[in-house]
Design a protein around this nucleic acid. Structure first.
Length: 579
DNA sequence: TTAGGGTTAG
């Protein structure tokens, strides 16, 4: 290496590969270029790209008095490669070295704060942005919108956005995505409409977020419109967009269409495959889920990861495929060297428990306990569900009490305990639990159901009387239930909370939000399947009622609950009552 | 004598 440019060439040739970089570095030192600031800067960014963060630090420390260029380079690289702690620490060092940050510095640092959801640090950086005079930089502002969104502070995110004098497509995207990620799907869709009205052309990032928002609320008409738009405008169906579409169709009840999108995708990755596997799983098609997983392995598809295994295992759990599930769990560790996390353990307990292997499920938890892993309440919640399902009340009560100690604020555990006491014929204990809930002001989560009819969404809550056609809906529901009773339907009263009197109990059951939504859907449409989205799990009584309603109305009823799908047709449900 | 940013899926 006789010249500086030859040395530079050598570094570039080494690329983001640690060994090669170290060799070049050694060579630089030997040939007298070891102190060149420019060469070291290039070396540092490449070391960071190689994810050799310790070596990056070492190189950085070897440079006396780093200049603004070096600081910006290392801050940008660490931020981009997701070393947020390093990024923030270089930023602090920059400040203490009296080197002035620029708008470029801030975008990177803010992104790292967003990655960490580090609200306090980010607010400090935001202040610094303002006093440094970069408060109106479009890039910095877009980064701030994302930052506040990722910290869950949508008010602040909106405030930054609203104050932007010049909004960019990316800034709009940041807001739409932020709202969607924070569960504010309706608002995300409204902002999307405002974006278009303001003359901004949505791009693929916009659509990915909009599709996710549609998937959340079940807004299939807007979702399908987006798909049409993508096809008509010849937009590239990239992996993220394709995956968002698979998720949309799956969560709106149309697995076939989800598969159609999957087959159309030119490029797929592990996320796309996982989305498709998960689609089969949540609809109860366990075999298809496992088959697709096998195909992924056989056809040299992408390497499955932890999320994929959650999808496969939960598919097995919901379809009663215990043997397959055990095999998959084994392969996860033995063939792929993945370490099962709490979510995988929960799938296993759920799978074994649902299938009636209560003892094995219990042993599974205790085995984890022995290795110090069983503190997760979710494991006991799954076990508790199995106890209730298989009427093992003694164990159920023991577990529910344990859960209440672990999570006293969770009303679900109290409700479960009270339900199990009621089922096992212990009314005194029921009132005791109920009183405790009242005393501690614990209320059951409010359930609601959404249905889309003619491109419009309607939300129902229990005993809802806010709709224009309330009278008609209730009358129609009464008629339906009468006809159901004629062919054998009997209300399942244990499903409601045991804090209402017997007479009220049937009233509450009769006007559950999902029943109102189904009645409304049947009333307003002809000859088509209706799809209802519920925020909680469907209750046992509604589940039974919908089987009968599918007969008397001669319609398919699809219900998406918190966990999975139920397709009711000709008197039975796709979950085979296994849920 | 070395570069360049903010948004998106399971």
């Amino acid at each position: 290496m006789t010249t500086n440019s030859a040395a530079y060439e050598a570094i570039v040739r080494a690329g983001p590969r640690l060994n090669q970089l170290q060799q070049v570095h050694a060579h630089l030192i030997l040939t007298g270029y070891g102190r060149s600031r420019s060469l070291l800067t290039k070396l540092i960014t490449l070391a960071c790209s190689a994810r050799a963060i310790a070596y990056t630090r070492l190189l950085f420390l070897s440079v006396p008095f780093p200049d603004d260029f070096l600081f910006n380079s290392v801050i940008k690289s660490t931020s981009k490669l997701r070393f947020p702690f390093d990024c923030i620490s270089y930023y602090r060092r920059m400040l203490s070295s009296n080197v002035s940050p620029t708008n470029y510095t801030f975008t990177s640092v803010i992104k790292s704060c967003a990655d960490l959801s580090a609200l306090r640090i980010g607010i400090g950086v935001h202040c610094h942005v303002v006093v440094s005079g970069f408060g109106l930089d479009t890039y910095v502002q877009a980064a701030l919108v994302t930052f506040y969104s990722k910290c869950g502070d949508m008010r602040a995110a909106r405030q930054v956005f609203d104050r932007m004098p010049e909004k960019s497509v990316v800034a709009w995207n940041s807001l739409v995505s932020g709202l969607e990620q924070n569960g504010l799907a309706e608002e995300a869709i409204q902002v999307f409409y405002r974006m278009r009205d303001s003359g901004f052309e949505p791009d693929s990032a916009t659509f990915v977020s909009v599709l996710s928002a549609c998937a959340q609320t079940g807004a299939i008409s807007l979702g399908s419109w987006v798909y049409q738009y993508i096809v008509c405008e010849g937009l590239d169906l990239n992996v993220k967009l394709g995956t968002a579409l698979i998720n949309l169709y799956s969560r709106c009840g149309d697995v076939g269409k989800a598969r159609e999108v999957f087959d159309k995708m030119k490029e797929t990755n592990v996320a796309a495959w996982t989305a498709m596997i998960s689609a089969y799983g949540t609809h109860g098609y366990g075999k298809q889920a496992v088959d697709l997983f096998d195909k992924m392995e056989d056809d040299y598809g992408p390497i499955p990861n932890n999320v994929t295994f959650v999808a496969v295992l939960s598919a097995c759990a919901h379809a009663g495929l215990v043997e397959e599930g055990r095999m998959v769990y084994k392969r996860m560790t033995e063939s792929y060297g993945l370490i099962p996390g709490v979510e995988h353990h929960v799938c296993m307990v759920d799978m074994l428990g649902r299938a009636g292997f209560l003892e094995e499920a219990y042993r599974f938890i205790h085995q984890l306990d022995a290795t110090g892993k069983a503190t997760a309440p979710a494991l006991w919640t799954a076990m508790l569900g199995a106890c209730k399902m298989h009427r093992n009340y003694d164990l159920g009560i023991e577990i529910a009490e344990r859960l209440i100690v672990l999570e006293p604020e969770n009303p679900g555990h109290h409700v479960m305990l009270s339900n199990i006491y009621a089922l096992s014929g212990k009314p005194d204990e029921v009132s005791h639990v109920r009183d405790g809930m009242m005393r501690n002001n614990l209320r059951k989560q409010v359930g609601y159901s959404i249905i889309e009819v003619k491109n419009k969404t309607y939300l129902f809550s229990m005993g809802d009387e806010s709709h224009q056609e309330t009278g008609e809906i209730y009358w129609y529901l009464e008629t339906l239930m009468r006809r159901c009773k004629e062919i054998g339907y009997a209300p399942v009263s244990e499903a409601v909370m045991h804090q209402v009197e017997e007479e009220e109990k049937e009233y509450a059951l009769r006007y559950h939000s999902e029943k109102l939504a189904v009645a409304f859907g049947l009333l307003k449409t002809v000859d088509v399947a209706i799809t209802v989205v519920k925020n909680l799990r469907i209750c046992e009584d509604c589940h039974s009622a919908f089987k009968y309603i599918s007969v008397v109305s001669n319609r398919q009823i699809i219900v998406r609950d918190k966990l999975r799908f139920h397709h009711f047709q000709n008197g039975s449900c796709s979950c085979m009552d296994y849920w």
